[in-house]
Design a protein around this nucleic acid. Sequence first.
DNA 1: GATGAGGTAATCAAGTTTGATTACCTCGCG
DNA 2: CGCGAGGTAATCAAACTTGATTACCTCATC
Lengths: 213, 213
Amino acid sequence: MSSIRLLVLGAVRQHGRAHGYQVRNDLEYWGAHEWSNAKPGSIYHALKQMAKQGVLLAHEVAPSTVGGPPRTEYELTDAGREEFFRLLREALASYDQKMDVLSAALGFMVDLPRAEAVALLRDRLDKLAGWRASATEYYTPEEGPGQLGHIGEIMNMWVHSADAEAEWTRGLIARIEGGAYVFAGEGEPFVGVLADGEENPFATGERDPGDDL
Amino acid sequence: MSSIRLLVLGAVRQHGRAHGYQVRNDLEYWGAHEWSNAKPGSIYHALKQMAKQGVLLAHEVAPSTVGGPPRTEYELTDAGREEFFRLLREALASYDQKMDVLSAALGFMVDLPRAEAVALLRDRLDKLAGWRASATEYYTPEEGPGQLGHIGEIMNMWVHSADAEAEWTRGLIARIEGGAYVFAGEGEPFVGVLADGEENPFATGERDPGDDL
DNA sequence: GATGAGGTAATCAAGTTTGATTACCTCGCG
DNA sequence: CGCGAGGTAATCAAACTTGATTACCTCATC
């Protein structure tokens, strides 16, 4: 699964009610266009799709004051709130080598209780260990390694990457357990969206890292 | 870009001439179904697509001896050889947080001259440094960090991950410069495909790591 | 000599992603 | 006033991905 549904649900949720362009702006504000597939087409598609599936409720709205075609505003249904937390938990707990999903989940992790966030991250550590084990085993069949040649480098890369992610995960768990950040039910929640009309202070022209490919 | 085109071109290239099922088998032999989107549908689609675009040449072949529907065999055109090396170079040199593309490129890197492989990997190091810089800068605007709250963890993850990949890349460069593996023009090339009829010694039932999500 | 289990090879429909493009409005400027 | 530059909001066709399904053959078994 890509991160688009989680990002869109999270954006609409923080606004209470939002139209496509607002969501699109928030995602840019979060830098999501740099590390996820959050293109306009995907965002509008996700909104419509999720409205059709009943996790969002669509409101037709009078043509906006600022020009452009008529907007549609969306708001989460109860099913939408459930879906948001389901995706969030899944993203935090499972290792699936998609950094964009994890990035999105980090942005929303404080919507969970502190203890649950930690538990999910520990779950992630377990899954990382499992993946590491299966990678080493797959590339080390009966005859032992050695005649694998350069193919062994693929395994080596995966192991290196799993180890690095495990280390980072342990660090994050330590920070959270050490009292960092404000989690659900602990006071004034963090506000991470642009107010209507507010401009994005981080707006970038073109500065993509990988760019093509 | 996904890794599917590179994988399929590489498989056909090593065979000289191959039909869809053979390609599919090679990819499983390489473990690609565990770390890429190499599903049958994608493979057959890529073959047809690339034939339409002129990088592959399709041959209709008499119904096979072993049963099943009639096969189509494919072979690289000159444009296909170019495309293969273009994708390979791009995959080795550019950082785009898609591990599957890099994995595929590792499997084919020995098709390049040793010196070029090293040069491309150094290029990758440069790009990693650039991405690291842009990530830290993006999340550290004028007011300095601190009031970012948990959002800073996203940046932290990216930096951690870029650093880990840079370290791994330096290790690989060192091994290659130290004389490991057999590169293009250095003798008997490594053979990484199944002969027709040979069975996959690594065949797995179901053992996916991340599975869903 | 039927039959059905199992392997081989490819296709399909539904859903997603992408990049370009459309449509509309405001505002500055000659 | 007229007009085009520039911003806003959404849509579209084309490509890609996915998981299931079709179609066909062989071979062991009854």
